Simulated assay, not measured.
Amino acid sequence: MRFVISVLSSSTSPATRRALRFAQALLAQKHEIVRVFFYQDGVLSAANNLVVAQDQEDIARQWQDFIRAYDIDAVVCIAAALRRGVLDHVEATRYQRQGGNLAEGYQLSGLGQLHDALQRADRHISFGGA
């Protein structure tokens, strides 16, 4: 079965951790992840400059490792990302900021990428949000 996963909460939210565990379980059961779409505060998981307290689990880093290890198509909503200060090098230059902080393996794009993935998936699972 082909899945799209939407992550809507920050990396400190239990929903984001559940989304990661769900994605890991899907691959373990030989399902396909068409795309993981990070939206709203979920875009913060794609920031490469987050620092987590030593006594806390670094879910953002775990997402980054998972995406890299399994070559997951990870898309970050560009509008939500810009509002929260998550930029790639192109956007950092465009908005005259010091540099990009989008982690390796992620791409900035619009909601059209979510729509495209939904057309190719059997299921859409969303974690977090208001």
Rank of each mutant, 00 (worst) to 15 (best):
Q40T: 13
T93L: 14
T93E: 12
N49L: 08
R123D: 11
Q62F: 00
R2G: 01
A19C: 12
E57T: 07
A46R: 00
S6M: 15
Q96Y: 11
A117K: 07
Q29G: 12
M1P: 11
I72L: 05
G129M: 01
A81M: 01
V51D: 04
Q54T: 03
A79E: 08
I67C: 02
G42H: 04
D88Y: 07
F38G: 01
R18W: 12
R61F: 03
E57S: 06
I59W: 02
L102V: 05
A25E: 12
R97N: 08
R21D: 15
Q24Y: 07
T12H: 08
Q64R: 04
F38M: 02
A79T: 13
R35F: 11
G42C: 04
Q64V: 01
R2S: 10
Q96G: 11
I5A: 11
R120P: 10
R97C: 04
L102C: 05
C77Q: 05
R18P: 08
H124M: 14
V52Y: 06
I59V: 15
G105Q: 02
S9D: 07
K30N: 10
D122K: 14
Y95W: 07
S13C: 00
Q29Y: 12
V90M: 10
T12C: 04
G100Y: 08
R123C: 08
Y95C: 04
R21S: 14
L114H: 14
V7C: 03
D71T: 11
A53V: 03
Q54F: 00
Q56G: 02
V36K: 06
S126I: 13
V52M: 01
E91F: 06
Q64W: 03
G85P: 11
R17A: 13
L44K: 07
G99M: 15
S126Q: 15
Q113K: 13
L44E: 05
L111W: 14
R35S: 15
D65S: 09
V51N: 03
Q98M: 09
T93A: 13
D41K: 07
V52E: 06
V34P: 08
A117G: 08
R35L: 13
S45I: 04
Y106V: 06
E57N: 06
A92Q: 02
D65E: 15
E57W: 02
A23K: 03
H124K: 13
G128A: 02
G99F: 10
Y39Q: 05
D116Y: 07
L20W: 00
R123T: 14
M1S: 14
I78F: 09
G105L: 01
R83A: 09
V76N: 04
G42T: 05
A47I: 04
Q119T: 12
A47W: 02
A74P: 00
Q107A: 15
L50A: 11
I72R: 06
A130E: 13
A80M: 02
F37G: 08
I5L: 14
S45G: 08
D88S: 08
D58W: 01
N49G: 07
H124Q: 15
D88G: 06
G129N: 05
D71P: 04
Q40G: 10
Y39C: 05
I72Q: 02
E104S: 09
E57P: 02
L118H: 10
H89Y: 10
L8R: 08
C77D: 07
R17L: 14
A28W: 14
A74W: 03
S45Y: 00
A80Y: 00
H115D: 13
S6E: 15
V75K: 06
E32D: 15
Q113E: 15
G112P: 14
Q96K: 14
Q54L: 03
